[in-house]
């Protein structure tokens, strides 16, 4: 009798565990378009040496899909930099995201970011939560411009950008 109860208890446990094992967790991966670029710029300075800045700029557009459309509802821009200078400090300035249909995003919130301090001297990350909807086959693209500059150096500045296609 006891053995039968124990057997039934174990069998029940096996059945219960099997029911849970049979479940699959449904994880909805975030959909995103992303691209990045790096730029290493030298600036000649008056004492005969160089100031330099090395940057990595990331541009991400997150979206949700519905039917034949994607709704882009969260975009981020991130810049990491490393610089070397004595008297003339080089800087990087990241602009606003603009879509090729004329839509631009000018309100950004700074967010916390972790970065590899052995590679980069600093890193900044911003997000914008404006929403736009495009067809999945849209030809609209996104552009994130940036400028590297060094006051009193030659060249005085150099520009770059990160492009994104939304299909």
């Amino acid at each position: 009798m006891k053995i039968n109860r124990r057997f039934l208890g174990c069998l029940s446990m096996v059945v219960i565990l099997s029911c849970f094992a049979g479940q699959t967790l449904s994880l909805k991966a975030a959909s995103l378009f992303s691209n990045s670029t790096t730029k290493k710029q030298l600036f000649a300075v008056p004492e005969g040496g160089w100031s330099s800045i090395n940057v990595k700029v990331d541009y991400i557009e997150r979206y949700s899909s519905s039917g034949n459309n994607n709704t882009l509802n969260h975009r981020s821009k991130c810049v990491s930099y490393a610089r070397a200078y004595a008297t003339s400090c080089p800087t990087v300035s990241v602009g606003n995201v603009a879509h090729s249909n004329g839509k631009s995003f000018t309100s950004w919130t700074k967010e916390a970011v972790m970065y590899d301090g052995s590679v980069w001297d600093g890193c900044s990350y911003w997000s914008n939560y404006g929403s736009v909807t495009y067809s999945k086959t849209t030809s609209v693209t996104g552009n994130l411009p940036f400028i590297l500059s060094c006051d009193g150096a030659v060249p005085a500045s150099s520009s770059g950008s990160v492009q994104l296609a939304f299909k």
Partner: peptide
């Protein structure tokens, strides 16, 4: 750094 710079030609 000079060899890998985007404006190596300036150097």
């Amino acid at each position: 750094t000079v060899d890998s710079a985007d404006n190596k030609e300036d150097a």
